[in-house]
Amino acid sequence: MTTHSIEHNATGIPTGKLAMWLFLASEVMFFAGLLGAYIVLRAGVSWPNPSEELNVAAAAINTFILLSSSMTMALGVAAVHKKDLSQLRLFLLATIILGTAFLCVKGYEYHLKFEHGHLPGTGLFWDCYFTLTGVHGLHVIIGILTNVWVLWLTFRDGFWARKSHLVEISGLYWHFVDLVWIFLFPLVYLI
């Protein structure tokens, strides 16, 4: 056994990494179901122009934030490969802050919609908007909490020996959250 506690299975892929990819594959199917329902619901009915109903600028800023957070997460994984603890903490913290900023912008957007009386249950357009962005927002919250947990682990004894592989696994989840938004942004706000 090496000093690392990463378990490998018959595939040769670290078990945690393989499990995360399998989970992400199931998540792809989950979001595909949601997006599929959204597209089918839109077809054949009068649909408002999203750019007139929604705040495209806020969504574009959020896309910028999430794309930037993907970069800081990737840099965090690179810092693990270089065994640079201070940079790893810095990039994890940056990812957490950017994720929180995304939620703040989203919360502001929701606040404006609520003020105008646009709530879930007030029409198909708003039902779809709140469902798709709400479920994605829930994934962002889970990703932030996971990164906070990983950041906390970097301050614990034995991080490099037993836990450093969790940065890559947590990163895969975070990038997936970004991938979903890459498709949600144009489908909900632009098209």
């Binding site: 393989l18 990819w21 997460m73 990737a74 990163g171 991938l179």
Partner: peptide, 20 residues
Amino acid sequence: VSWYYMHLDGEKALPLWIVV
């Protein structure tokens, strides 16, 4: 994002490609 940030560029394991 998937190729560079999720490191599929360096991924050689066939089972992972099948899964992904």
